[in-house]
């Protein structure tokens, strides 16, 4: 697990690939770190000309309602700033747990992996994900 010493909140790096922001989440995520990330992403979109955000969560072992809310908020904030957000690589156990929890994050675009997420963002701005 990618812990780092407790208390020392190392921020999650946000990479820019062209006009897409790429964030890789891994291991144990403190609430504060997640909130910090939300702010960072919002700033980066507002400053630059990012048209999309890809959040790779294949290394995340649990998502509770707090982190779920953060992800949903990042997506809706980005949408207001005219950028699309795709969450990529959610593990089956995490997905099953979220479904059981009733946390289906309806507004979120998802993809099997980062590559697919990039493809999705590169595709013309049409309703990518099925609404129903």
């Amino acid at each position: 697990m990618n812990g780092g010493p407790f208390g020392g909140l190392t921020p999650v790096p946000v990479l820019a690939l062209g006009d897409i922001l790429l964030v890789t989440l891994q291991g144990e995520l403190h609430d504060g770190t997640a909130e910090q990330l939300q702010e960072d992403i919002t700033h980066r979109i507002a400053q630059g000309n990012a048209s999309g955000v890809v959040i790779d969560i294949s290394g995340v072992e649990i998502i509770d309602s707090f982190l779920g809310r953060i992800l949903a908020e990042i997506a809706s904030t980005a949408r207001l700033l005219a950028a699309r957000t795709v969450v990529a690589g959610m593990r089956p156990a995490v997905a099953i747990t979220l479904a059981e929890l009733g946390l289906t994050l309806p507004g979120l675009h998802t993809a099997l992996n980062t590559e697919r997420a990039m493809d999705l963002l590169a595709s013309p701005r049409s309703p990518v994900q099925k609404g129903t």
């Binding site: 690589g89 959610m90 995490v94 997905a95 979220l98 479904a99 998802t110 099997l112 997420a117």
Partner: peptide, 12 residues
């Protein structure tokens, strides 16, 4: 639930 979980993973 299966449908919801699959969607979260990026599958249909």
């Amino acid at each position: 639930k299966t449908v919801a979980a699959a969607r979260l993973m990026g599958a249909e």
